[in-house]
């Protein structure tokens, strides 16, 4: 187990290095941030001073080396625009994004699993068919369009919910969170729902497919033959088996929820990392872009590792690190 985790972490650091090289080269190729950073009225001496200050006068490989040395000590460079450490800038915005993503996931799980179970147990009922039709909509409607629709309906027409910002926040363990205040909740609801919709549909479909498959298995028949109540057959025998793929997917999708949050954050002006990233790309603020991607990829890696560990807890047949088991992605 320990050996497995160490091997995974080593692989992951290689991924991180490769990614930072790519992003470095990519942003360099897009354009020169100097044009955006220096006052067009500045003279050549002033211009050269700024370039030297940002280290942009050196060749790219040397810039990367400087970045790499800094990264080893946890310093991912300073924002060109704000002249403060990029990591700090992102970490300051990250709680808002994570709160949004977590809420979206909670909505998707809380509604997705029961609805999927229902649709799987009663595939021919009206409710079952309605749930499935709804999930197809959730899959196919574009996120930004649904987001705009939500704003039109709840903010503009009905005036029930605010359409932008986080609302009142409270400080919990050093993080600002919205979900503990009524005002914050009303701000959180629409973006979280918007972000959840796709994952909700995914979880419904996964749960339904898993349920239908499990119901055909002999162990369900045997469980019924023992005289167990239907609630136990479904709630323990079926659910425990279908939780294995569901937990895997939920875990893997959590990373993409954070990534997708960029769209939702833009629509609802949610002050998270997504919005920061868009701004940084516009101003070619390379240190922030690189730092953002490094942090997101690290998050992905940690999540995948946690999922694998969870997987082995849920499925007694999986032992981590033994060859190419299902647990090793």
């Amino acid at each position: 187990m320990t050996e497995y985790i160490i091997r995974r972490l080593l692989q992951s650091s290689l991924v991180l290095v490769a990614m930072s090289v790519l992003v470095f080269a990519g942003v360099y190729a897009i354009g020169n941030p100097i044009e955006l950073l220096v006052n067009p009225m500045a003279d050549d001496a002033e211009r050269a001073r700024v370039i030297a200050n940002l280290g942009l006068d050196k060749p790219l490989w040397e810039q990367y080396l400087t970045f790499f040395k800094g990264a080893l000590t946890g310093d991912l460079g300073k924002s060109f625009v704000f002249n403060v450490p990029a990591v700090g800038l992102i970490l300051q915005k990250l709680p808002a994004t994570i709160e949004l993503a977590l809420c979206a996931m909670v909505i998707a799980i809380l509604f997705g699993i029961p609805l999927g179970l229902w649709a799987g147990l009663k595939p021919d009922s009206i409710a079952g068919k309605t749930i499935m039709a709804g999930s197809i909509l959730g899959f196919s409607l574009p996120t930004f369009w649904v987001g705009l629709l939500l704003i039109m309906l709840f903010s503009v027409q009905l005036g029930w919910l605010p359409s932008n910002g986080r609302g009142d926040t409270v400080n919990v363990l050093g993080f600002e969170v919205s979900f503990l205040t009524a005002d914050g909740l009303s701000h959180l609801f629409m973006p979280a729902l918007n972000l959840a919709l796709f994952k909700l549909s995914l979880i419904i479909r996964l749960t339904r497919a898993g349920t239908r498959e499990a119901l055909l298995q002999d162990y369900v028949k045997f469980a019924r033959a023992k005289g167990l109540r239907a609630s136990r057959v479904v709630g323990v025998h079926v659910l425990k088996n279908i939780m294995i793929p569901i937990v895997t997917v939920i875990g893997l999708e959590f990373g993409s929820v954070i990534a997708f949050a960029i769209v939702t954050e833009s629509i609802f002006a949610w002050p998270g990392t997504g919005k920061l990233l868009i701004d940084s790309i516009t101003s070619l603020d390379r240190p922030v872009i690189v730092a953002y991607l490094m942090i997101i990829v690290t998050l992905f890696i940690v999540i995948n590792l946690v999922v694998d560990i969870l997987y082995s807890v849920l499925d007694p047949r999986v032992r981590l690190g033994q060859g190419a088991g299902q647990g090793a992605h």
């Binding site: 002999d218 162990y219 028949k221 045997f222 025998h237 088996n241 849920l314 499925d315």
Partner: peptide
């Protein structure tokens, strides 16, 4: 009580 044919399938693998 009833016992089924395939013992690989009748016991729930995750319990």
């Amino acid at each position: 009580a009833m016992i089924f044919q395939d013992p690989m399938m009748t016991l729930n693998p995750v319990l």
